[in-house]
Amino acid sequence: MHIDPAVLERTIAIIGGIIVAIVSAKALKDDWNTPGLDNQVFKLMLGLLFIGAIVAALAGANVLGNFPKAA
């Protein structure tokens, strides 16, 4: 059975992106009430990591970065 590499890559990106988004959201939730400057920065970084994972999953799903082929 032949699988198109692009389809495989997109599938991995979608599944991986969703997993990383869930994990980072859980980490953010667990750390939400932790005090200290370093933990505030970690929370900001985890939030941005969550957004990045969602963006990567959407790009894998062809929702973002879906451009028509050049003529």
């Binding site: 990106a13 991986g16 990045g52 994972a53 879906n66």
Partner: peptide, 17 residues
């Protein structure tokens, strides 16, 4: 190539987690 870059991005974001 968006598809390959998406996978590579997920790898890096996963390493952050």
């Amino acid at each position: 190539d968006v598809a390959f870059a998406s996978v590579n991005s997920v790898v890096l974001f996963g390493s952050g987690a």
